[in-house]
Simulated scan of single mutants.
Amino acid sequence: MPIKRELIKIDAPAGQPGFLGAGHIARPVVSGPFSVTDPFIMLMDDMLDKKDNQPVGGPHPHAGFETVTLLLEGEIGDESHKMKGGDFEIMTAGSGIIHTETIDKKAKIRLLQLWLNLPQKDRWVTPRLQNVSLQQVPASNKDGVAIKVYSGTLAGLTSAVQNYSPLIVADIFINEGTSTELELPASYNTFLYILHGSVRVGEEEKLLQKDQVGWLDLFEDAAKSELKLIAGIEGVRLVLYAGKPTGDKITSHGPFIGDTPQDIQRLFQEYRSGKMQHINTVPERQKIFL
């Protein structure tokens, strides 16, 4: 019999003023000790309602991890690469990269950006960029359940995204009163983020509501597990994240993740001395468009 997954922790993170100034609200969906959230370092729900043409954002470095971005609403990027609602991107910062997020016009945007740990053996890999347009996302819609799988395998759907750290990301809609069961590896750390409506989770049918984050129990056993979901009276839209813990200890400071404090010092020196390349200028073989 598959292991039955249950909801063991509910967070209700509050939005707070974001670094992009007026109209930017950032909600820390994932925070806390990495030993508990592994392989997830942090996840921000960024909501921007920008009402002027003053540029915000700009170039900045990253290294030692991956950014995993799901654009829920709006458009970001420039003419060389523009993301639209429903698009997905994984940027492997690896050994170090600079990228630019500048918004210079009126815009209404909502995006989820995850910082995903790279396993220690892959910490300093060559940077790369993977982009998936909404049209290329594996999807199904049957029996009142619509699923889009951006990374990994779920509900018979498999993404073409390449992963260093095994990761499932899925955007799920369930109609009012409809129930479904999802199969997941029992050893994957898993949480649900509710975008709309409500859902009852697990055999215990614990309630999870809009803007809440629900963490599932975690098992060392690599066996299969099942997650039961029953949508509430408004139906539910949620994003599911499940990842295999790396078991590593990390050092985090600013835009960098390393194994030791010395790694962080080295990365700052490399950035200040101009040794980090901009992601737009890396060879085409390091850019994957799906």
Rank of each mutant, 00 (worst) to 15 (best):
P2N: 11
I3E: 07
P17W: 04
I25M: 12
A26G: 03
A26T: 11
A26I: 09
S31Y: 11
F34A: 12
D38Y: 02
F40T: 05
F40V: 08
D45M: 04
L48I: 12
K50W: 04
K51F: 00
D52H: 08
Q54C: 02
Q54T: 14
H62T: 05
G64V: 06
T67Q: 01
L72Q: 04
G74F: 01
G74E: 00
M83A: 09
M83K: 00
K84F: 01
G86S: 05
A93I: 09
G94I: 04
T102K: 06
L112M: 11
L112W: 00
L112S: 00
L114S: 06
Q120M: 08
Q120C: 08
K121T: 13
L129T: 00
N131A: 00
N131K: 03
V132Q: 08
S133T: 02
Q136K: 13
A139W: 01
D143H: 12
V145K: 05
V145Q: 05
K148P: 02
S151N: 05
T153P: 03
L157K: 12
S159L: 02
A160G: 11
N163L: 14
P166W: 01
I168Y: 03
I174P: 02
I174F: 06
N175S: 15
E176V: 05
T180N: 11
L182A: 07
E183C: 13
L184S: 08
L184C: 13
P185C: 11
P185V: 08
Y188Q: 06
Y188L: 10
Y188G: 08
N189T: 15
Y193I: 08
V199F: 10
V201R: 09
G202P: 03
G202M: 03
L207N: 08
L208P: 02
G214L: 03
G214K: 00
L216I: 09
L227W: 03
K228M: 07
I230K: 14
I233A: 14
I233D: 15
V236F: 10
L238T: 10
V239C: 01
V239R: 03
L240E: 09
G243E: 10
T251F: 13
T260D: 11
T260P: 12
P261T: 13
Q262D: 15
D263V: 14
Q265C: 09
R266A: 15
R266K: 14
Q269P: 05
Y271R: 04
R272G: 15
M276D: 07
P283M: 10
E284N: 15
L290H: 12
